[in-house]
Design a protein around this nucleic acid. Structure first.
Ligand SMILES: NC(=O)c1ccc[n+]([C@@H]2O[C@H](COP(=O)([O-])OP(=O)(O)OC[C@H]3O[C@@H](n4cnc5c(N)ncnc54)[C@H](O)[C@@H]3O)[C@@H](O)[C@H]2O)c1
Ligand SMILES: NC(=O)c1ccc[n+]([C@@H]2O[C@H](COP(=O)([O-])OP(=O)(O)OC[C@H]3O[C@@H](n4cnc5c(N)ncnc54)[C@H](O)[C@@H]3O)[C@@H](O)[C@H]2O)c1
Lengths: 256, 256
DNA sequence: AGGCGCTTGTGAAGACGTGCACAAATCGCG
DNA sequence: CGCGATTTGTGCACGTCTTCACAAGCGCCT
């Protein structure tokens, strides 16, 4: 992945924050830290050690410290990190201090679930508009939002600034929708359709593909099966645990 | 990620296939190649060059060749790869030659969408059972499958071999559900709940988290905004493309 | 048969990510 | 005031992944 290293960009940011050019792997973990921190805050913790937070987020403590050090975070040696302060810092870095508007295109099977999901608002994202191409769906109201025809996208985008576009149409329509989103100035897209999309430089694309996840799991399942076929050691994977308690130390396969 | 290198395991597999211990990054891309290959096959192509397939899958051609070389694939120099043969090879490596049964736990907002999704069957996965804890949902029929109470999991799992468990419950119930799945012998789990789950060694866990994807996009959006604030060069990201055609060469940010 | 163009497979180098291990810093307590 | 317990921040080494560049192989055309 050679992306996100925009070539001619000078290392300095505009005004106050002085963005320190975080490693992509770190960025991908910050949201997990953030969720763990919110849980800790709700539980009444004022501070947390790197070990504690790492456990709560399911990562190595050294990795966590390095990640936080990248954003110049201030922990106190011998004590740990101030939970509230760290939440503030991470939210600031992730750009979550302002509420971001999301446009959802394709209100079918999956689109309905997404439109009704409350996990958006709780993290500072607001579904600003719903679009579909099917006249039968246009006008339907979901969660207080009316489904509009996708042709109205330019007009709606002109009214309110759309931060992120979400594509939940069939794969055959996804590229066209992406082009439309880009045309109205959307520079971040999350795609649920199982296909590759081309977008111009400067537009960020992320993809969620259920089938791929299942196939990766299938591979490991296949591999485990052919390993238990004959080796003398360890066939314990198939036996259930004694109690219902899972071991708290292991966590496997987070390809992300 | 130190996972998937099971320590004591000898390098040799059981019988025929001689699994060559693929790099994890390669495994994650094989499903994409597979989809691209199916598209090519449907379009009537008999062979494809690494360049052509790489384009269709949205990756670098050198990377694609190295990936395929890992599974000992036989392309022909000067010609390319036999599409049908390559499909067969990849499906065999991914363990897709046998149909895998999936158990879905949590038939709520998201669970309904998943249960009604036809992208499962088309890739060799079969939803074998639906479970929920809410008595009001038990008995409901979705897509020809009856929702059962989650307490019946052991009995159902004994009847049919479950390959993969999918968790679509609220986060508060996810760990308990994971424990139950592990207890009945499931060794691969796909989790949609926004939380970290502990599973014993030998069980593979993958996670799909919408909120994390949005927050990563938010970060890049934030970064782009503070870059366009003052630098003299390149403010072209905001201007729409000339036609509706997207450039075919760039693709950004696939953290997966 | 021979040459030519095209494509694969891979060695090597570099970029990136991870985790250990330890010095430096801070707090609390005697 | 000093000391020990604790925890952060990071230098360093290692493994993984990516990309370039090119020799070797294949088919086709003359
Ligand atoms: N349902 C799932 O659980 C699931 C899971 C993973 C991925 N997906 C993928 O998500 C996408 C949507 O899945 P779904 O099950 O909701 O399909 P669906 O057919 O139920 O919904 C698709 C919706 O998109 C609309 N649409 C079609 N063309 C459009 C266009 N050009 N502009 C705007 N809207 C348009 C249709 O009218 C329809 O309402 C598919 O690509 C699917 O492969 C679905
Ligand atoms: N809806 C979305 O678009 C979306 C997107 C991303 C992630 N998620 C996550 O997916 C999960 C499900 O979301 P949802 O919108 O479908 O929620 P939901 O509340 O609509 O559905 C949850 C279902 O799980 C069932 N359930 C609760 N405890 C259970 C248990 N112990 N065993 C079995 N079933 C149990 C409930 O009865 C309910 O039917 C949540 O964790 C959510 O954060 C949802």
């Amino acid at each position: 992945m050679s992306q996100h290293r925009h070539p001619g960009a000078p290392g300095r940011a505009g005004a106050v924050p002085a963005l320190p050019d975080l490693p992509e792997a770190t960025v991908a973990r910050l949201p997990e830290y953030l969720r763990a921190l919110h849980n800790l805050a709700d539980a009444g913790h004022e501070t947390v050690s790197s070990e504690g937070l790492a456990n709560a987020a399911g990562v190595n403590s050294a990795k966590l410290r390095k990640d936080l050090s990248h954003l110049g975070s201030y922990g106190t040696r011998g004590v740990g990190y101030d939970v509230a302060l760290l939440i503030e810092q991470i939210e600031s870095v992730l750009g979550l201090t302002q509420c971001r508007s999301v446009a959802l295109v394709g209100v079918g099977n999956l689109g309905h679930a997404l439109a009704g999901y409350d996990g958006f608002a709780s993290r500072g994202f607001r579904i600003a508009a719903l679009f579909d191409a099917d006249p039968a769906r246009v006008g339907e109201e979901i969660n207080g939002l009316v489904v509009r025809h996708v042709d109205e996208l330019p007009r709606v985008a002109a009214e309110q600034l759309i931060s992120i576009g979400v594509i939940a149409t069939p794969a055959s329509a996804a590229q066209a929708v992406a082009d439309q989103l880009v045309a109205v100035g959307v520079t971040s897209i999350l795609n649920f359709a199982p296909c590759v999309l081309s977008v111009p430089e400067g537009v960020d694309m992320r993809k969620v593909d259920l089938a791929i996840e299942l196939q990766i799991l299938s591979f490991h399942e296949h591999r485990k099966a052919s390993l238990t076929a004959l080796p003398g050691t360890a066939g314990s994977a198939l036996t259930a645990l004694p109690g219902g308690l899972a071991a708290t130390d292991t966590q496997e396969a987070i390809g992300t």
